[in-house]
Design a protein around this nucleic acid. Structure first.
Lengths: 330, 330
DNA sequence: AATTTTTGTGGAAACGTTACCACTAAGCAC
DNA sequence: GTGCTTAGTGGTAACGTTTCCACAAAAATT
C-alpha cells in the first residue's frame, strides 16, 4: 500500500539501516546519502511518525491543556507555545477543559497515553490539589495558575502586584468605592482578589470581591445585578478579558456611562479594549513571553530533570485609558 | 520501565491477546474482563497510542490547518472541530500557517507523516491551485475557502450573498460611495469582492475594491491612507473581523466619527463589535456550524470514499448596528 | 609494519500493540 | 451420538521504524 523504508532501501540499493541513517544522523557516505534522497523522491516516501515514535521512544510531542482556546489570553499563549514547539521540531496536542475537572482528568490520562515529552497546563484549583508530580511520567509546566509550594515549574503573572497597580491607579483618580469581579475556578482569580483586597486595605478602604463562573455571560449577569444596586460601586476591577466584555455590556444595558457612572479597569489588553469608548484601562499580560517561557522551562527540565523547580513571575503593564478617567471633585 | 500490556497479562494471569481483547472489543468472558481491569488498575497501565496506531493502522487523528488561531473566526471554528473530534474519540493536530504557502506545504507533509485520518484545511489561493486530490492519502475538507470545481468537500459562507447583503443594507441607508477592503491571500477575499462589485453594479454604482495582506496592521494602514483622501468613501465594507479592528482604529486616529464621517460594515460578529460605539454592522458567520459540518463531511467521506464531493454553503446573518445608521438627507 | 581507531555498511532485534489463526469446550440441531 | 456453530482463549506474526551489534575497509597512530 503505502511506501515504507524498505521500499526506499530496495530502490536505493542499500539496507534499511543505511536509509534510516541517511535520513537521520549517523555516518553515511555522501554518495549513498544522494542515492537515498533520490530514492525518497522517486518513491514519494514519507516516514511513519507512529513507528518512529514507538521505536525511538521519543514522541517529540508536547501537550497543552487550557481552559478554553476562545479566551484570548489562552489563544495568544497557545500560539506562542505552538510556534516555539514547531521551531524545536515538536508537535502540540491542544485540549480545552472548560475548567471542568473531569475533563482535566480525562486529558491528563490522554497525555500519558500519548507519551508526551512534556506538558503545559493551566489547571483549575480543584485538580491543582490532586496533582502529584510522581503520578506523571513527564515534566509539567504550569501556566497562569500556581500550585502550592514549589512543586512544579511555573510561569505566571504577578497577579497580586497587577491588582494592586489597578487599585492604586483607581484610587489616584479619586475612586474609593471599588468592587472586584474574579474568576471562581482558578488560583489566578484568588490571587487577583487577594492583591485587590490587600491594596484596598493598605489604603484604608474596604473592598468587596465577588466570584463568578468563568464565562462572559456569568460576568455580565453578576455585573448587571451588582450595578443595579442603589449603592453600587464607583468602579469595578475585572479579573479577565472575557469578563470585561460582559461588564461593559451590562453597563450599556443599564444605560450607565463609563467612566461617569461606573469606572472599569481589568486584565488583558485585547485590541478591542482600545476601541470601545472611552478605552478600557487594563493590565497587559506578556502573553508571548508566557508561552515562550513555559516552553523554555520545559526544555530545561528535560535537560536537567533534578534541578530545583523554578517559578517565573512576570509583571504586567498598566495601560491607562478613559474608562478610569479622574473622578471630578465634588 | 513503563508498564505494558505484557505486564498486565502476567498480573491478570491471561495472555496478551486476551488483555487486548478485554480492553477493546471482542469476545471475552465477564470474569476475565474483571481480572484484566483489576490488573490494569493494579499496575497503572496506560496503553501506548503510538504502538496502537502503528499496529492498527488507524491513527484516530485529524489535522486542522488554519491561517492563524488568533483570528477569532478560526478560533471558534477550531474549537467546534476539536469538540466534535474528541467526542468521536479522535485527536486534533492544529497548525498555523500565517497564510504562508511554504508553511502550508510543510504542514501538509507533516499531516502525511502523521498518517492523519482526515484533514480540515483553510488554504491560501496559492496552494489551492497546487493541491491535487490524488497526492494525499487521506480525505480533506476545505473550510472558508473554495477550490475550483468540485474537487474537494467544502464548507463555507455564501460570501457573494453576504457582501451583497451588506451593500444592499448600506444603499438602503443612503450610502452610495462605498469602498471595500478585502484579504489578498484567500479566495474568501476574492468572493466577497466579487459579491460587493456585483451588488454595486446592480445598483448602478461603481465600487472600488482594495486588497490588503491578512493582518490588522495592514488593514489599519490601508484604511488610514484611504480615509485621508479628500474624496474618501462614505462607507467602508470590511472583509473580516481582524481588519475591522484596524479600520476602526484608523478612523479614530484620523478623528473620523462612525457613522457620521465614515460608515463601517464588516464580517464576523465578535462580542466587541457590539460594544464599540455605535456598534458595528456585521455579517455573523455560523462558526460552530462550519466546524461541525466540516467534521460531518469528513466522516461521511471516510464512510463513502467514492461519493460525489459536496459543497455546503451557509448563509450569514446580517446584524445591523449603529455604524451604518441612515445617512441624513441633504 | 603493526596496531588501533574511525567510517561506513548490513543483519536482526527490539518498541507495544492488534489481528490472524488454531484450538478447545460447550451449546445446539438433527 | 454425530456433526456444526460459537464463545473464549493463547501463540505468533505483523505494523515501520531505530538501534545495537558485527564486521570490513580505510585511516590514523604507534
Amino acid at each position: 500500500m503505502t511506501v515504507n523504508i524498505k521500499d526506499v532501501a530496495r530502490v536505493a540499493g542499500v539496507s534499511v539501516s543505511t536509509v534510516s541513517r541517511a535520513l537521520g544522523e549517523g555516518p553515511v557516505s555522501a554518495e549513498v546519502r544522494e542515492q537515498v534522497q533520490a530514492a525518497v523522491r522517486a518513491t514519494g516516501y514519507k516516514p511513519n511518525l507512529s513507528a518512529r515514535r514507538l521505536r525511538s521512544q521519543r514522541t517529540q510531542t508536547i501537550g497543552l491543556i487550557v481552559a478554553d482556546i476562545r479566551n484570548p489570553f489562552f489563544t495568544a499563549v497557545g500560539r506562542a507555545v505552538e510556534d516555539a514547539a514547531y521551531r524545536a521540531g515538536m508537535r502540540v496536542i491542544l485540549c480545552n477543559t472548560d475548567e471542568d475537572p473531569a475533563r482535566e482528568a480525562l486529558y491528563l490520562t490522554l497525555m500519558q497515553e500519548e507519551r508526551v515529552t512534556g506538558l503545559i497546563f493551566a489547571p483549575t484549583r480543584a485538580t491543582l490539589d490532586r496533582l502529584q508530580a510522581d503520578a506523571l511520567d513527564f515534566p509539567m509546566v504550569l501556566i497562569d495558575r500556581a500550585g502550592p509550594g514549589g512543586q512544579f515549574d511555573t510561569v505566571l503573572l504577578d497577579n497580586r502586584e497587577a491588582s494592586a497597580t489597578l487599585v492604586d491607579h483607581l484610587v489616584s483618580r479619586g475612586y474609593t468605592r471599588i468592587g472586584g469581579l474574579f474568576g471562581a475556578t482558578s488560583t489566578t482569580g484568588v490571587e487577583r482578589r487577594d492583591g485587590y483586597l490587600a491594596a484596598m486595605a493598605a489604603r484604608g478602604l474596604t473592598g468587596e470581591a465577588r466570584f463568578v463562573p468563568p464565562s462572559a455571560e456569568a460576568a455580565e449577569n453578576a455585573a448587571a445585578a451588582w450595578l443595579r444596586q442603589p449603592d453600587r460601586p464607583q468602579a469595578l476591577l475585572v479579573s479577565n478579558g472575557l469578563f470585561l466584555t460582559g461588564v461593559v455590556k451590562a453597563a450599556r444595558t443599564l444605560g450607565l456611562r463609563i467612566p461617569h457612572d461606573i469606572a472599569v479597569a481589568g486584565f488583558d489588553n485585547e485590541p478591542w479594549t482600545e476601541l470601545v469608548e472611552p478605552g478600557l484601562t487594563v493590565i497587559e499580560q506578556p502573553v508571548e513571553t508566557i508561552g515562550r517561557e513555559a516552553m523554555a522551562l520545559l526544555f530545561q527540565r528535560l535537560r536537567t530533570p533534578d534541578a530545583p523547580t523554578r517559578k517565573v513571575v512576570l509583571s504586567g503593564r498598566c495601560v491607562a485609558r478613559g474608562s478610569t478617567a479622574a473622578l471630578p471633585r465634588t
